[in-house]
Design a protein around this nucleic acid. Sequence first.
DNA 1: CCTTAGCACTCGACCTTATAGAGTGCTAAC
DNA 2: GTTAGCACTCTATAAGGTCGAGTGCTAAGG
Lengths: 351, 351
Amino acid sequence: MDKMKERKLSILRAIIQDYIITAEPIGSRTIAKKYNLGVSAATIRNEMADLEEMGLLIQPHTSAGRVPSEKAYRLYVDQLMQIKKLDEIVEKSIRDSYKQYVEQIEKSIELTAKLLAQLTSYTSLVLTPEIRSLNCKLVQLIRIQDERILMVIITKENVVKNHEIVLSQSVEEAELTKLTNILNYFIKDLDISMINSELIKEIDQLSIKENQFLQDIISNLKNVLLDSDNKNTLYSNGMTNLLNYPEFNDIDKVKHFLEIFQEKQTIAELLKNYANGTHIVIGNENTISQFKDCSLLTATYQFNGQNLGTIGVVGPIRMNYDHVVSVLAFLSQELNKQINQNRYSKNTDER
Amino acid sequence: MDKMKERKLSILRAIIQDYIITAEPIGSRTIAKKYNLGVSAATIRNEMADLEEMGLLIQPHTSAGRVPSEKAYRLYVDQLMQIKKLDEIVEKSIRDSYKQYVEQIEKSIELTAKLLAQLTSYTSLVLTPEIRSLNCKLVQLIRIQDERILMVIITKENVVKNHEIVLSQSVEEAELTKLTNILNYFIKDLDISMINSELIKEIDQLSIKENQFLQDIISNLKNVLLDSDNKNTLYSNGMTNLLNYPEFNDIDKVKHFLEIFQEKQTIAELLKNYANGTHIVIGNENTISQFKDCSLLTATYQFNGQNLGTIGVVGPIRMNYDHVVSVLAFLSQELNKQINQNRYSKNTDER
DNA sequence: CCTTAGCACTCGACCTTATAGAGTGCTAAC
DNA sequence: GTTAGCACTCTATAAGGTCGAGTGCTAAGG
């Protein structure tokens, strides 16, 4: 009984692996010949009929071979696949490419998107850290012109964010310096959630005008940190990679798929649902209609143990899951190293 | 003689305008019926034969109608087309959308890309200002950590640019403030080309350490202003729009076309060739192979009379030239207003 | 001499039909 | 339980046929 089941699984695995490569329905003969399972095509045929009954295989039509169902892929990724380590040479070359961007988070993240697409031949999705999840290290106010000022926010993770503010009245250079100092005195190392009205009260001893400025600025700061416009952005690469796969031979499908990439915010929102651990989302398990014909694999990267963002790959359901999982694991690990190295040294021990 | 030529041109215009809409070879009957030229199909047939001999029309095969050649489009845009003003209502709604981003150059430019794509149903290309062409108003140095500092550059046009610098040794807060002041004293209102070694000599009276910092910073500043990595970036919108047109029904064409959009720098370089006035580049007149099947229309936007960047539209050769020209003209004009308004008021009168 | 109606001709688009072959399910023998 | 054999199914591909839009040419008319 168990042995039989074993054989069924072997056959299923063979079919899936073959289909991932060929994208064409697999017949019993093919399996019997290519994979040495020690049984004849007829036996395999019987097993395949069983597997079909179990909802794991689908026959496009009577006289065609069989194709794995989404349920089969689910089974495959949960139980059947064996993840291999990446090639040493590949790993080395990846590490080398990261080296050129040491300490440059943004660049490293962008690179990750490029590498993901290159290494998998699918489409990569990489979410940048959401600034609300970070901790302010420093806020600098710079006078642009009259009542327009630039607010530069630097987080502990050394992520930099600019934001222009228009105040209700003109501000002088000296005043701004003072405001910057006050702001930093209170804000330094604070979590966003602690920047609240109490803070404003604490600084009531300032002149009315300065107080007004500060309120303006703080409300802007909160907006930057919390608002939609400044949410995490998405890097994506290799959109055209998918056009190489026969499942995207249909122009309408391509259009439907590419359109979602015009609205990157939607994808960003989606990825945020997978903000911890790794996920494999197959076909109709996807909530976004554009991804119903695709599979999405995700992993995350961290700073100081805290999740910063999600990296992922979209491809056809007939995806090389083993390989993508390896690539994601390795890249997320390298990106972690890249972000975390040397950062504990001085300023970030307290908390 | 001249009258005959007149009729030929009318027929050609009719064919082109019809083909722009239908994308199908036009027969003599169609022209005779749809466009009241007062002559019979037979006459038109004769004229069409002439036009073909002149290289202005092409017959896909013997028993098909005729299609305009690229030469015909060239003639059309040079002599035949009549540009109409945009609809008042449309113009108003465009102006309204700009209003939300008053004084925010970057946002306004992004909006322009979006509007261009929406209004034309083609793909838009919008180049941001190249910072080298701008004039520094202010440079602010912010200490991130140890020897890492952030350089924020603000130009007269209020374009903001960040750049991280790693110095050869650690720097203190106070030192950095001093350096910022020195830098600004010299740099203010200077054209990039004037930030040179002479400047460095002028400040030789500083301590060796500070001098070293300053040299580091200035060389970095020059890099930002001149280097490839900081060249103008490209906004693009409506890439999928083109998939609606029958000339892009071929997956391979789509792939070929979309691939160039992965390498935006190439397109940016291309657009820089059209940095003044308006241009219409038809089909094989394009230097980029990906655009050989397309036409590219460009215009520019200015600050204080100086060209800042290029805006453009790519679409099928069978493009609605009249309309695109109108849209480009209007948007470039509105973008100009948006950028130039209120900016002369205070700081930018000298020069 | 230019214009136009008439007509035979051309050729791709599309539909129909025929054929080949991959793959199946079933049966009977091992 | 496994396997060889075989009739059957169904798609993909090719081949042939028809239709119609559009042409070029000719000859008649203003």
